[in-house]
Design a protein around this nucleic acid. Structure first.
Ligand code: MN
Ligand code: MN
Ligand code: MN
Ligand code: MN
Lengths: 219, 219
DNA sequence: TAATTTTCCTCGGTGTGACTGGGCACTTTG
DNA sequence: CAAAGTGCCCAGTCACACCGAGGAAAATTA
């Protein structure tokens, strides 16, 4: 039974390795995202290596074993299912759920998660548009494009967010850019890559590159 | 923020002091119900005393402070609300919920509990008939009698169970003695205090004193 | 390739939380 | 009062997570 901290490390390592497939995950990077010191990370890596959850060769970076990947995906599954529960059943807003789910993802009962999944109607996506891994760890990589990659004249529907920070989500709510919103790119400012877009065939707004780099759309 | 273990200790102490009001709770008794050694209990009592959660005077037993009582009642509130959730929403049976709720009761977000309470429709009783403390710690002592105190000719409706062990609850399910069942006492065997009862104006059964001492009824 | 910079491992150590056996002090009981 | 029972205290264990410093290894650059 992995501890809370171990689950958090494995989840972080999984996400880092997904962000740059093929590249081994570095100690410093892990320390950075987990807000801790490299020495602490090395320490935990050794322990997780001994438990067979990751391949740890000194100086060579790290990659998850099959078991480690399973634990990471199960933790992500729990996190995202609880987020769906919080939003769809308890009426939380999508910007309020992260910290609570961060705690709930460590509940261990497999029966609980199976029944929760059923209760929620076997959702495929969490409130931020991220895919929910199946019980066996299967996960579908969604076909998305970043809004920042759209050219003038192209359009799409907002499907997911890359960043789930509270200020970003609140900005999107305010701008009418929640999941499902339709976006047409009217113009691109060459100087700072900001975009002029039309939202839901209605209001025209300017969004910065910082925003468009964190928003996914699909046709 | 109390740790899981501290919450478990406070809950146990609260329950022991309720079981025998007025009497201070003893170290050995706590060790017994928490399945640990008296030395460990002394250790924890000192720490909880320092944190102002209980009155701890060596050799004099222990009683909760106002704050300690609040933590205990809040933990019980969380435990029982999650039990209601598991039974009413996720389709658990009343004999399956205890261990899961034992873990969920340690989730800390107050907002989560408030929204959960609302989602469940502000239930007053958990699946075992136990009252759910309010947010401010208020709890209503239910007016119950033990079935073992009924005399032949008396009747009542099953309102709560004193024991929540899996075998006991499964026995009750099988015997048709779930919450809401109507009981008429037909006869009492003087030798072993077992009772002959009629269930729901229908089947007649014999129940042992062991059973009737753990079942509450009201008129 | 050599020098420099960057990465990160190792070592020794800290702090906390929880638990424990054994000896002895205190309290209760007879 | 003596014996029995209870519970405190000590000294120690163990697991977990963290960290600074120093130097080894790797990567980068010159
Ligand atoms: Mn977490
Ligand atoms: Mn999410
Ligand atoms: Mn518990
Ligand atoms: Mn209960």
């Amino acid at each position: 039974m992995p501890s809370h901290t171990e689950e958090n490390y494995l989840k972080a390592i999984y996400k880092l390795s997904e962000a740059q497939p093929g590249v081994e995950v570095s100690t410093n990077r892990i320390a950075e995202v987990l807000q801790t010191r490299p020495a602490s990370v090395t320490d935990m890596l050794r322990r997780l290596g001994e438990k067979g959850l990751l391949h740890y060769e000194r100086y060579r970076g790290v990659s998850l074993t099959h078991d480690g990947r399973r634990v990471a995906l199960l933790t992500i599954r729990k996190h995202r299912l609880w987020e769906v529960f919080l939003v769809n059943k308890l009426g939380f807003n999508w910007d309020e759920v992260h910290d609570v789910a961060e705690e709930m993802e460590h509940l261990q009962s497999p029966l609980l998660i199976r029944r929760l999944d059923e209760f929620l109607g076997f959702p495929q996506l969490d409130p931020h548009g991220d895919p929910i891994p199946a019980e066996d760890g299967a996960i579908v990589r969604p076909q998305h494009r970043l809004v920042s990659d759209l050219q003038p004249g192209e359009e799409g529907t907002v499907m997911a967010v890359k960043n789930t920070s509270v200020p970003f989500l609140q900005y999107l709510d305010k701008a009418g850019l929640s999941l499902g919103a339709k976006i047409e790119v009217l113009d691109k400012v060459a100087f700072d890559n900001s975009l002029e877009i039309r939202i839901n065939s209605n209001k025209v707004t300017l969004i910065s590159n910082e925003i468009s780099c964190n928003l996914f759309v699909a046709d």
